[in-house]
């Protein structure tokens, strides 16, 4: 029956316009299908033929481009919230694991000799890098809390998604910059430290890979919220 595909065609067109977490998209489309099926059934009960009933249901649902914008906002927000939670949990955890690994394999850092104490700029970078994980976690937590308040004040899902993307990109940028900075600084001051313990070196590499993965997630926040 030719008319049996009207709702399917509409949902396929909607699906093609959406980018974001698959499980959220499937959930949204399943709900949309329920609504369209209900509306078509109501029109059939009112005496319309099956195809006409589906066409009316689809027309009532709205132009696919307009509806896709609203749905894309939801997907972008869902991805943004998930990314912020990931930052909140993973960045401090990676930091703590790295420190535990370092204290197990190396213990306390040996003194910088024979050149004497490290320069002030090195200590500044080291302290900033130590704080970066907690600053990132604080920023993510702040964005999650303020996002809920802003949603109550009527902020659109697209604006909320853009905010989460902005915070995620900034937070990952800070974290990645901190990691790379301390590696470069250590290489300049005392390169032997980077090779002091292979397990610690491996942990540093894993931390860097985690940051790069988080950067991909943060970038997607921006891509998904560009509507």
């Amino acid at each position: 029956m030719a008319g049996a595909d009207v709702i399917d065609d509409y949902l396929t067109a909607l699906d093609r316009r959406l980018r974001g977490p698959e499980h959220v998209k499937e959930d949204l489309l399943a709900e949309a299908r329920d609504s369209l099926d209900d509306a078509a059934a109501a029109y059939r009960d009112g005496g319309l033929a099956a195809e006409d009933a589906q066409r009316r249901a689809v027309a009532d649902f709205g132009p696919v481009n307009r509806i896709a914008r609203d749905y894309q906002g939801l997907l972008a927000l869902a991805h943004g919230v998930r990314t912020l939670w990931t930052l909140l949990l993973v960045v401090p955890l990676a930091r703590v694991m790295w420190e535990l690994n370092r204290s197990f394999w190396i213990g306390s850092w040996p003194a910088f000799d024979p050149a004497g104490p490290p320069p002030d700029w090195y200590l500044l970078i080291a302290r900033a890098n130590d704080s970066a994980a907690w600053i990132v976690a604080g920023a993510a937590l702040g964005a999650l809390a303020s996002g809920r308040l802003l949603a109550r004040r009527g902020w659109s899902t697209v604006k909320l998604a853009r905010l989460s993307g902005l915070v995620a990109v900034g937070a990952v940028g800070v974290s990645l910059f901190g990691n790379v900075s301390i590696m470069i600084a250590t290489a300049l001051v005392d390169a032997a430290r980077l090779l002091m313990s292979p397990p610690v070196g491996l942990a540093s590499l894993v931390s860097l890979v985690i940051m790069l993965r988080l950067l991909v997630l943060a970038r997607r926040c921006v891509v998904f919220s560009t509507i």
Binding site: D60, F61, Y71, R152
Partner: peptide, 18 residues
């Protein structure tokens, strides 16, 4: 209003905790 706009609005209210 287009019925398709109701679902995103409901999800936004869910995000707001309402």
């Amino acid at each position: 209003l287009p019925t398709g706009t109701v679902y995103p609005a409901l999800r936004r209210l869910e995000t707001a905790g309402l």
